[in-house]
């Protein structure tokens, strides 16, 4: 099963800088009531790579993650699973994930996901532009008699 839209917004929420999602969510208005189905917990996941970049998987090493699941009083369930030890960020990400399934979707898009997408694009473009400035331009010296 796939849910491309939800994958996209959950990815944006997970990639955001520490503290950014609670900040944007706070600016969007009062936080909704919810109950925990799984309170934020910190653990690890094993990150895998592929032999030769494309071949059989191998275990590269672990990374810390925080995950949680909550249910809004209106019934929608929000999940978050993100890199690092960030309970506050996980909570805010799960709230946004749940609100995206309610009429608050438009508000979340404009106040939270929109700015996050801009942050991500800006950060990515900035590093790519710095990398581009270090790209080698080769030139060949003219050699020989003629």
């Amino acid at each position: 099963m796939k849910d491309t839209k939800r994958q996209t917004w959950m990815g944006l929420l997970a990639r955001a800088d520490a503290g950014r999602v609670p900040e944007l969510l706070g600016q969007a208005g009062p936080s909704p009531d919810f109950e925990w189905l799984r309170a934020p917990e910190i653990g690890s996941v094993m990150v895998q790579g592929r032999t030769g970049g494309t071949g059989a998987p191998f275990n590269l090493g672990e990374m810390t993650v925080t995950r949680c699941t909550l249910r809004l009083s209106s019934g929608e369930v929000g999940h978050a699973c993100l890199k690092g030890r960030r309970k506050g960020d996980a909570e805010a990400a799960a709230v946004v994930d749940a609100l995206m399934q309610t009429p608050a979707e438009t508000l979340m898009r404009s106040k939270v996901l929109g700015p996050l997408a801009e942050d991500a694009a800006r950060a990515r473009h900035c590093r790519a532009a710095k990398a581009a400035a270090t790209k080698v331009d080769f030139f060949t010296m003219v050699r020989g008699e003629d």
Binding site: M1, Q7, M10, G11, A14, H79, C81
Partner: peptide, 9 residues
């Protein structure tokens, strides 16, 4: 719980 993969960072 979701049945699909998401980016975690």
């Amino acid at each position: 719980e979701l049945g699909f993969a998401v980016e975690i960072g």
